[in-house]
Write a protein that binds this DNA or RNA. Sequence first.
DNA 1: AGAAAATTTGGGGAAACCCAAAATTTTATA
DNA 2: TATAAAATTTTGGGTTTCCCCAAATTTTCT
Lengths: 146, 146
Amino acid sequence: MRKTKQISNVSQMLSMYLKELMRLPKDKRVSTTEFAKKFNVHPSTVTEHFQRLSRLNLLNYVKYRGAHLTQEGIHQGELLMWKHRILEVFFMEFLGLSKEDACSEATKIDFFISSNVIKLLCKKMNHPRVCPCGFEIASTYCEEKS
Amino acid sequence: MRKTKQISNVSQMLSMYLKELMRLPKDKRVSTTEFAKKFNVHPSTVTEHFQRLSRLNLLNYVKYRGAHLTQEGIHQGELLMWKHRILEVFFMEFLGLSKEDACSEATKIDFFISSNVIKLLCKKMNHPRVCPCGFEIASTYCEEKS
DNA sequence: AGAAAATTTGGGGAAACCCAAAATTTTATA
DNA sequence: TATAAAATTTTGGGTTTCCCCAAATTTTCT
């Protein structure tokens, strides 16, 4: 009954957490201070966000022990990263941005842009399999019929 | 000393007000109830936002008498509309979206996307002079050297 | 075991939204 | 031109999201 391809109730900030989480090894648990440094924020703030992600069933968070993404969290994180990376490819290949600029520009809008636009962009870019940073682009959301 | 091409302290919501204001005749003063209907919000909410825009010197707002954009407001509104329309053109011509979809997709990201990306997009689209809806695209921000 | 380090809790604060009811001003009409 | 009706603003609340700090708790290290 539930749609799978939607980010439910995730704020922009939470989406940033989700994306960062996706870049980390999925087996290891992440600590709050580790994250606090990345986001230039106090540890207690991270705790708060982890708890929120946990309430949304996106993060498996155990007090004092760190956290890792749930299946659902990975799923939503993959959607975000797919958007992010397709945008990166587009910004580099079509607009000629540098790798760094492509990433920062993608970061500004990946949360807001629709799946449909990304899907069309993906097609136009010939369904890239890797992003400019060398990371693989998960094909879960790409509907290539090759 | 002041940079001219930046949206200063305008929230996404205020940017929506700015864009809507840009679509209205600039000589006439707009009433709060008029706006309230457009945004499906109570009149008092509009008053609040008008006051805020006024504090930012973007809106000339006189109690009980309505409001109209200041020079600065028009300037910032033009930047937003430029982004919006270039995106519309891109979405229609490059991705093949309908006029309506192009508009709604542009609305989702125009506030967040950088001027630089839009500038490159503008060039790729050959510096369009009108958007899909037939509106003229102000060239203030377009650096075409034709 | 006990001290040090990491983490969470609880209490607050600011900003951006929104609404409802009361007060005020404008307008329209009798 | 009064006065009633309509429009607008004020006031007072309420919510959410984000952030910090200090104190309490738990884990880790020696």
